[in-house]
Amino acid sequence: MRIDIITCLPKLLESPFADSILKRAQERGLVEIHVHDIREYSTNKHRKIDDYAYGGGAGMVLQIEPIARIIDELKEQRSYDEVIFMTPDGEQFDQNMANEMALKGNLIMLCGHYKGVDERVREHYITKEVSIGDFVISGGELAAAVMTDAVVRLLPGVLNDETSALTDSFQDGLLAPPVYTRPADYKGMKVPEVLLSGHEQKIEDWRFAQAVAKTKARRPDLLKKE
């Protein structure tokens, strides 16, 4: 997989991709992540990439020209499955979408900033609009990092134990059950006996029951989707 991220604040994305699972995935050659600075594609001598909105109103708008130049250049080099715009009014990102994206080959992610992007970018270049929640953050960079992390960890070979991703919350429509590790007894706080029993079926039954109970208590909306 190759992911190209278009942003006006590339330094915001340095840390998320330089550590942990995303770092190892890149080192193993399982994913390529490239960050492109919109300002480098500006034709303005001051590297200006935004302007006032036609018709007035508060906030600046990202211009179409530098964004279009980046996307056109990338698409001349290879084909892309999706050109994604990270925006609060996009389709809600969830585990199902992460699973779908993990089956793709190449993705472009455009990070919004300021008051947004010229609508012509959305109309003519974007194939999918995605939101990570019903709230507004300063730009799409953190949203792109979240989406990239959620997708890349699903790629074969990224996690040392590939079954780990299959037991994550939301994969089966439920929240994940509680987990415990050593010591079995810490100051009287004990691990449930069933987990120490070695009886695989009883353990799986317990975990499923716990997952259902936890989902019912915290996210009953997930159960209603069934």
Results as ranks from 00 to 15, higher is better:
residue 85 F to A: 03
residue 62 L to E: 06
residue 15 S to K: 14
residue 155 L to M: 14
residue 179 V to M: 14
residue 185 D to N: 15
residue 214 K to F: 08
residue 146 V to K: 03
residue 65 E to S: 10
residue 146 V to M: 08
residue 57 G to L: 07
residue 75 K to P: 08
residue 4 D to W: 05
residue 188 G to Q: 00
residue 36 H to P: 08
residue 104 K to R: 10
residue 66 P to Y: 07
residue 22 L to I: 02
residue 9 L to C: 10
residue 158 V to Q: 05
residue 213 A to F: 04
residue 212 V to R: 13
residue 43 T to E: 04
residue 179 V to Y: 15
residue 125 Y to C: 03
residue 166 L to E: 13
residue 185 D to G: 00
residue 71 I to K: 06
residue 132 I to G: 03
residue 42 S to Y: 15
residue 124 H to D: 10
residue 15 S to I: 10
residue 199 H to L: 09
residue 215 T to R: 12
residue 105 G to D: 10
residue 205 D to W: 07
residue 96 N to P: 04
residue 117 V to Q: 03
residue 3 I to N: 02
residue 123 E to Y: 09
residue 64 I to K: 12
residue 181 T to E: 00
residue 223 L to W: 13
residue 56 G to L: 01
residue 13 L to E: 02
residue 186 Y to L: 08
residue 42 S to C: 09
residue 200 E to H: 15
residue 111 C to K: 02
residue 26 Q to M: 14
residue 175 L to N: 03
residue 67 I to T: 10
residue 46 H to Q: 12
residue 9 L to A: 13
residue 224 K to M: 03
residue 174 L to K: 11
residue 185 D to P: 01
residue 74 L to C: 08
residue 65 E to I: 07
residue 105 G to K: 12
residue 63 Q to L: 12
residue 10 P to C: 05
residue 136 V to Q: 01
residue 24 R to H: 08
residue 165 A to R: 11
residue 193 E to M: 01
residue 42 S to T: 12
residue 24 R to S: 14
residue 154 L to Q: 13
residue 156 P to S: 09
residue 7 T to A: 02
